[in-house]
Computed example of a mutant assay.
Amino acid sequence: MGKIDLIDAHVHLYDEESLSSLRWMDKSLPISCEHTTTKYRAQNWNQGSSPFNFKGVIYIESDVKTDLSCGLEGFTPAVRELKFVIEQSIKEEGLIIAIIPWAPVPLGPQTLELYLNKLFEDINPQQISLVKGFRFLLQDKPDGIMVSRKFIESIKWLASKNFVFELGIDFHRRGDGQYREVGVLFESVKDAAFVIDHFGKPNLAVDGFSDNFNAWKRSMKNIHEIALKNNNAVYLKLSGLLSELDKHAENLSYEEIVQSATPYFEYALQTFGLSRVIWGSDWPVCKLNGGERAFPLWRDLTMDILNSLEASDDLKQRVFSLNAVEAYNIHVS
Rank of each mutant, 00 (worst) to 15 (best):
Q127M: 11
L19N: 07
S188W: 01
K221W: 06
S219D: 13
R41G: 02
H331K: 14
A233E: 15
E113K: 15
G280I: 10
L137Y: 01
D143N: 13
S49T: 09
E113A: 11
E81F: 04
A227T: 07
V332E: 00
S49Q: 12
L309F: 04
A9P: 00
N124L: 11
L185F: 07
F209M: 12
V85H: 06
I100S: 04
K221C: 11
S253P: 10
L72I: 05
A249G: 07
G144H: 06
F165C: 13
A261S: 14
E121G: 00
D197T: 03
I128T: 02
D246I: 02
A98V: 03
L236P: 04
L204P: 13
K217L: 12
E326T: 08
E166C: 10
F209L: 10
F295W: 15
N231V: 02
I90D: 09
G48Q: 14
N289H: 12
L274A: 11
I155L: 12
I152R: 12
K83M: 01
E244I: 00
L22D: 06
I128D: 01
S62I: 11
E92Y: 00
Q126T: 08
A159Y: 01
F120Y: 12
S281F: 07
R149H: 09
A215C: 11
K287S: 13
P77C: 03
V184G: 01
S50P: 02
N214C: 06
G240A: 04
I169L: 14
W102S: 03
L68R: 06
R23G: 01
L309A: 02
Y254S: 09
K237L: 11
D26S: 13
D191N: 15
L137W: 02
I196A: 12
R293P: 00
K65F: 03
K237N: 07
L238I: 15
A324N: 03
R173D: 13
S28R: 15
E326Q: 12
H248W: 08
R318M: 01
F213Q: 14
L252H: 08
L137V: 10
F151W: 11
R149M: 08
W283I: 07
E121Y: 10
F186Y: 12
A268W: 04
Y59L: 08
F213G: 02
N323A: 09
A311S: 13
T38R: 15
I223P: 05
K229Y: 09
R180N: 11
F163K: 15
F136M: 09
L238Q: 05
L112M: 07
A215S: 14
I278R: 09
G290V: 10
P202V: 00
N307A: 05
I123S: 03
T66P: 07
K118C: 06
S154F: 00
F84D: 07
S89D: 01
Q178Y: 10
L19T: 02
L236F: 02
S333P: 12
S260M: 10
S21P: 03
I60A: 01
I4S: 00
L6A: 05
P51D: 04
K65N: 10
F320Y: 14
P101F: 06
W283F: 11
L228D: 14
V164W: 05
E166Q: 13
I96P: 08
S160F: 00
W298I: 04
A215K: 15
E81T: 02
F272M: 10
